[in-house]
Computed example of a mutant assay.
Amino acid sequence: MDGWYTAGVVGGLSTIAICAPSGEFLNMRAPLAMGLGVVFAASLAGMFLPPTSALGAGLYSLSLYGGLIVFGGFLLYDTQAIVKRAETHPAYAMQPYDPINSAVSVYMDVINIFIRIAMILAGGGGNKRK
């Protein structure tokens, strides 16, 4: 089930990135890097706070849902970056364009999105009270 949700999210975001005007998402690199820093800091801080506390639960949610948003943004950016690199690669270059090495970043984005969706569906993102 997680794979279908991931396929829907990745397919939708990739379609948006391909159909968007040329280079629209290429300016998102700096905000995405800052968002990744916030998600990373929340993940580190969450290791030292108990998840039962309000602050610990908030940091966990920030790292979970914020990470999903950030890696979705990275998917948009990386998809347009691959298209831009393929279009601007010179035909007279000594080495041909290598789409496999360009697609590694998209692959890592998909893996991260899958992990976040699996954690959300496993109940890690909600407050459980007995």
Score class of each variant (00 low, 15 high):
Asp2Val: 15
Gly3Ala: 15
Trp4Asn: 12
Tyr5Met: 09
Thr6Arg: 10
Ala7Phe: 02
Gly8Thr: 15
Gly8Asp: 10
Val9Phe: 05
Val9Glu: 05
Val10Leu: 05
Gly12Arg: 07
Leu13Pro: 00
Thr15Asn: 11
Ala17Lys: 02
Ile18Gln: 01
Ile18Gly: 03
Ile18Phe: 00
Ile18Glu: 00
Ala20Phe: 00
Pro21Asn: 14
Ser22Ile: 12
Gly23Arg: 07
Glu24Ala: 15
Asn27Pro: 08
Asn27Ile: 13
Met28Pro: 06
Leu32Arg: 03
Leu32Tyr: 00
Ala33Arg: 15
Gly35Leu: 06
Leu36Pro: 06
Leu36Cys: 07
Phe40Gln: 13
Ala41Val: 14
Ala42Asp: 05
Leu44Cys: 12
Gly46Lys: 05
Met47Pro: 11
Leu49Glu: 01
Leu49Gly: 04
Pro50Leu: 10
Ser53Ala: 11
Ala54Val: 09
Ala57Phe: 14
Ala57Ile: 15
Leu59Gly: 03
Ser61Glu: 08
Leu62Glu: 02
Leu62Gly: 02
Leu64Arg: 04
Gly66Met: 04
Gly67Met: 08
Ile69Ala: 15
Phe71Glu: 09
Phe71Cys: 11
Gly73Gln: 00
Phe74Trp: 00
Gln80Ala: 02
Gln80Leu: 04
Val83Pro: 04
Arg85Leu: 13
Ala86Pro: 08
Pro90Leu: 02
Pro90Ala: 04
Ala91His: 07
Pro96Thr: 06
Pro99Glu: 00
Pro99Arg: 03
Asn101Ile: 14
Asn101Arg: 10
Val104Thr: 15
Ser105Phe: 01
Ser105Asn: 06
Met108Thr: 10
Val110Tyr: 03
Val110Lys: 08
Ile115Tyr: 05
Ile115Pro: 05
Met119Arg: 15
Leu121Ala: 08
Leu121Gly: 04
Ala122Met: 08
Gly123Ile: 02
Gly124Leu: 08
Gly125Arg: 03
Gly125Ala: 07
Asn127Lys: 09
Asn127Pro: 11
Arg129Lys: 10
Lys130Met: 05
